[in-house]
């Protein structure tokens, strides 16, 4: 359960203040599937960063599963990211020197899990994404769709409740994009909350909830 109340966020760009979010109100229940849409600069990414606890709002309240997050110290926010939230980025953000399996293992390593448990979970996550034969390949040996599926495996390996995807198909061709969306929707079908930021109307149309943004505010 996510509740945003009166969220404001502005940035100083040169000598201008850009209001990226203006009094945003939003409630997402567990298992929701929401697409955040809108033109560039409408505040979609800022909203996602705030939902993902990567950024703090200037004002307002954000409760995640009943915990008020805006006042939490950075350590606790890091822990919430680690345990509750999975990120999928447009640019994949895989570490080039690590294999697919090692990339997926990262969040478990940061959480200090024992090696055996890590191996088991990584294997399961890769299996779900159909990447088992690719486990020991480095990102430069994988196709774009495979890279994004590695990123999804990494986002889900800690069994989070919330998946935040920022233009997950933005760098992919249509067929690979379909695969990635199918993978994300399958997670949603298992009860994970899924929030996708996208430009793509067709992709947005598949979500149960469509959140349109313009100039820092939610319009519908």
């Amino acid at each position: 359960m996510i509740v945003l109340r009166g969220i404001r966020r502005s940035f100083q760009v040169g000598d201008q203040v850009v209001h990226a979010l203006r009094d945003v109100e939003l409630t997402l229940t567990d298992g929701d599937y929401a697409a955040v849409m809108g033109p560039s600069g409408s505040g979609k990414s800022t909203l996602l960063n705030i939902l993902g606890l990567l950024d703090r709002p200037d004002a307002g309240s954000y409760t995640l599963d009943g915990t008020e997050t805006t006042t939490l110290p950075e350590e606790r926010r890091a822990r919430l990211r680690r345990e509750r939230i999975g990120f999928v980025f447009q640019a994949f953000h895989l570490i080039a020197r690590l294999t697919a399996a090692e990339n997926v293992e990262l969040p478990l390593m940061l959480a200090g899990q024992p090696i055996r448990e890590r191996r088991r979970r990584v294997a399961a996550a890769l299996e779900t994404m159909g990447l088992t034969p690719r486990a020991n390949h480095r990102p430069d040996q994988l196709s774009g769709g495979q890279r994004q599926r590695v990123a999804i495996a990494r986002a889900t390996v800690t069994e989070p409740r919330l998946i935040l995807a920022d233009e997950p198909t933005g760098n992919l061709d249509r067929a690979s994009g379909e695969d990635v969306i199918a993978a994300l929707e399958a997670l949603n079908a298992q009860g994970l909350t899924l929030v996708v930021v996208t430009h793509d109307q067709a992709l947005g149309a598949r979500a149960r909830r469509r959140i349109r943004m313009d100039d820092g505010a939610i319009v519908t």
Partner: peptide, 15 residues
Amino acid sequence: AEVGLLKALGARQRD
């Protein structure tokens, strides 16, 4: 970008 990723994945400052 790697540091940003690690933080998104839940790495703390001290990690």
